[in-house]
Write a protein that binds this DNA or RNA. Structure first.
Length: 284
DNA sequence: CTTACGGCCTGGGTGC
DNA sequence: TGCACCCAGGCCGTAA
C-alpha cells in the first residue's frame, strides 16, 4: 500500500526520467478512476513534463501545454492501494490491469497499472491546484516539532485517527502510523488531548525516523508495491508491529496484538504501549 | 465544529 | 471445484 515513503520512492524514480519529456499520445483502458478522461486525452498530447513532486500521497506532475503556449497545468495521481507507475520500453509486455499509457518522445512509455482501481487521476488547471491540495495537513517530514505538537495537542480523537487524517498530516497510512506509535510507545487508542507534550515530541521523532528509514529502504513491499523501476522495497523487513499479531515484541516479552482502531486494523504491543484508562460510555 | 461510524468502490487471498 | 467473506485507503453521508 503506497504511503509517503513508497510515493516518495516512486517520485524520485520518475524525477530521473520524466522532466523534459514530451507526451506524444495518450491511450486509456478502464477510466472509472479518472475524474475527466476526456481532459487527459485533450490536454496531455503534445505537453511537456517540467517536474514531478510528491504532496502527501499524491504525485504531482507539472506540465506545460504544447509548444509556445506557456499554459501550465498539472497531472495529479494517487496510487490508492494497488496503483503502480512504470516507465519503460514501449515494446515491454503489458501487465494486467494497465489502464493508462503515455507514449513519450524518447520512445518509452509511461504506464499506470491498478488492480483495484482505488487510485485517482485528474488534471489540475492552475486555478484548481490550491483547492485540490490546500486542504491537506502538514508534511510529516517538513513539520517542525512545534508545528507537529500544535497540530495534535488538544484534539479529542484517537491518536491513530489523527495520524491517519490527511487534513492533519499528509502522507501517513496504516503501516507507518502503527510503526511510529510503537516506536514512540504510545497506544493507538490514546486521545490526542491526553498525550503529554513529551509524548507528542517523542511521536514526532518516531514518525520522522520511521519515514526516513523507510525511504532509505525504498518503502515497504507488503503485497505488490513496486517502484517506477519495478523494484520492491525492503522496509517490510524492519516492521516491528505491522502484521505481526501474536509474535513477540522486539522490545520485550509482550505479544503483538491486533485491534480495530479508527476503522483500521491496528497492531501494537500492550506492554510497551499502555492502553488508555478506558473510561467508556457514560451515557445514562 | 469535531468526532465516530457504516457503507461503498474492487478483486486477490483465504478458508471452508 | 466453487464460493462467501475479509480487507485495504479515501471519501461521503449521517448521527451525536
Amino acid at each position: 500500500m503506497p504511503e509517503l515513503p513508497e510515493v516518495e520512492t516512486v517520485v524520485r524514480g520518475l524525477r530521473a526520467v520524466l522532466p523534459g519529456r514530451r507526451i506524444l499520445t495518450v491511450r486509456l483502458g478502464k477510466v472509472d478512476f479518472i475524474e475527466d478522461p476526456a481532459a487527459l486525452e485533450r490536454d496531455l498530447p503534445g505537453s511537456r513534463i517540467n517536474s514531478v513532486r510528491r504532496h502527501g500521497k499524491f504525485i504531482v506532475a507539472e506540465l506545460e501545454a504544447s509548444t509556445g503556449s506557456q499554459v501550465s497545468f498539472a497531472l495529479l495521481i494517487h496510487l490508492g492501494m494497488t496503483g503502480q507507475i512504470v516507465v519503460g520500453p514501449s515494446e515491454a509486455p503489458v501487465a494486467p490491469h494497465t489502464h493508462v499509457f503515455f507514449a513519450l518522445d524518447d520512445g518509452r512509455e509511461f504506464r499506470y497499472t491498478d488492480i483495484r482501481r482505488f487510485g485517482k487521476m485528474r488534471i489540475l488547471s492552475a486555478g484548481t491546484q490550491e483547492a485540490a491540495l490546500g486542504k491537506l495537513g502538514l508534511d510529516p517530514l517538513e513539520a517542525t516539532q512545534a508545528e507537529f505538537v500544535a497540530q495534535l495537542r488538544g484534539r479529542r480523537a484517537r491518536i491513530k485517527a489523527l495520524l491517519l487524517d490527511q487534513r492533519v498530516l499528509r502522507g501517513m497510512g496504516n503501516i507507518y502510523t502503527d510503526e511510529s506509535l510503537w516506536r514512540a510507545r504510545i497506544h493507538p487508542m490514546r486521545l490526542g488531548a491526553n498525550l503529554r507534550d513529551t509524548e507528542l515530541r517523542r511521536l514526532h521523532r518516531a514518525v520522522r525516523q520511521v519515514l526516513e528509514e523507510a525511504i532509505r529502504m525504498r518503502g515497504s513491499s507488503v503485497s505488490d508495491y513496486v517502484d517506477s523501476e519495478g523494484q520492491r522495497g525492503s522496509f517490510q523487513q524492519r516492521h516491528r508491529v505491522y502484521q505481526r499479531k501474536g509474535k513477540k515484541c522486539f522490545r520485550g516479552d509482550g505479544l503483538i496484538q491486533r485491534a480495530i482502531v479508527a476503522g483500521r486494523s491496528s497492531y501494537f504491543c500492550p506492554r510497551c504501549q499502555p492502553a488508555p484508562r478506558s473510561r467508556r460510555r457514560i451515557s445514562p
